[in-house]
């Protein structure tokens, strides 16, 4: 049981790292949203691995409920980001330079 937990938890940690490093790169928005979502799934995997209680055993339901909340929040955030991006592209289809004074 511990080995299983460990395997999945470490996988989750690695996925978090992969997703975060990709999310911090300067990339098209869609790629960054994918990266954030993948990092999020990594965190959820960590939670689920922690909740696991062995084969045939009922898992700890508290992390499951937390992850369920997290999944819904993640889709709301992705939808919001895509909606803003969509409006941005419609308003200024060509002007794609970085915002004025955005980097200090």
């Amino acid at each position: 049981m511990e080995t299983t937990q460990l395997i999945y938890a470490v996988t989750g940690a690695l996925i978090i790292g992969l997703g975060l490093s990709a999310a911090l790169r300067d990339e098209p928005l869609l790629a960054r949203i994918i990266a954030i979502n993948i990092a999020g799934v990594g965190v959820f995997l960590l939670f689920v691995a922690i909740a696991y209680r062995g084969f045939g055993q009922t898992a700890d339901p508290i992390p499951h409920a937390l992850v369920l909340t997290g999944i819904v929040v993640a889709v709301a955030a992705s939808g919001l980001a895509i909606a803003i991006n969509r409006r941005l592209h419609h308003d200024s289809p060509s002007g794609d330079g970085p915002a004025e004074d955005s980097s200090a």
Binding site: Y8, V41, R53, V75
Partner: peptide, 26 residues
């Protein structure tokens, strides 16, 4: 993987919302 880890609720939610809806959105 979550179905394997005894988390059927999450497997359902991830398939429907995480992969399904977010995927369609993307």
């Amino acid at each position: 993987a979550w179905a394997r880890l005894n988390a059927p609720d999450l497997a359902l939610a991830e398939a429907a919302i995480g992969a399904g809806l977010t995927g369609a959105l993307l």
